[in-house]
Computed example of a mutant assay.
Amino acid sequence: MHSHRSFENPPALPHHLVAEVLERALRDHPAYFEAQLKAEWEAASVLVGTALNDDDAGFVEYWCVRVGTLAPSGSPLLGLAGLCLGHTARRFGRLGAEALALAGSLAARSEADPEDVDARAQDGYDDVRSFLGLW
Rank of each mutant, 00 (worst) to 15 (best):
83 L>N: 08
106 L>Y: 08
73 S>L: 07
115 E>N: 13
115 E>P: 01
113 D>S: 14
102 L>W: 08
113 D>M: 10
93 G>A: 04
121 A>P: 01
57 A>L: 05
2 H>D: 07
86 G>R: 02
66 R>M: 07
97 A>P: 15
25 A>W: 07
123 D>V: 11
120 R>E: 08
13 L>F: 06
77 L>K: 03
80 L>N: 10
68 G>M: 10
18 V>E: 00
107 A>M: 06
118 D>E: 15
15 H>F: 08
55 D>Q: 10
39 A>N: 07
67 V>M: 09
34 E>M: 14
1 M>L: 14
41 W>S: 11
64 C>E: 04
35 A>W: 13
96 G>T: 15
44 A>K: 06
68 G>P: 04
118 D>Q: 15
83 L>H: 14
15 H>Q: 12
67 V>E: 06
1 M>D: 12
121 A>T: 09
30 P>K: 12
82 G>S: 14
83 L>V: 00
79 G>E: 07
55 D>W: 06
34 E>I: 13
90 R>P: 00
24 R>N: 07
125 Y>H: 15
63 W>R: 01
60 V>I: 08
87 H>E: 09
118 D>H: 15
32 Y>K: 15
88 T>Q: 06
125 Y>N: 13
54 D>N: 11
16 H>E: 14
53 N>R: 15
78 L>R: 07
93 G>V: 14
100 L>N: 04
77 L>G: 04
7 F>S: 10
70 L>I: 00
60 V>L: 08
107 A>F: 08
71 A>N: 05
93 G>I: 11
51 A>E: 02
2 H>L: 10
94 R>F: 05
126 D>M: 06
3 S>R: 08
62 Y>R: 04
71 A>G: 06
47 L>I: 02
63 W>K: 01
6 S>W: 13
36 Q>I: 03
76 P>Q: 07
52 L>N: 03
12 A>V: 10
95 L>F: 12
107 A>Y: 04
72 P>W: 05
45 S>E: 14
73 S>V: 14
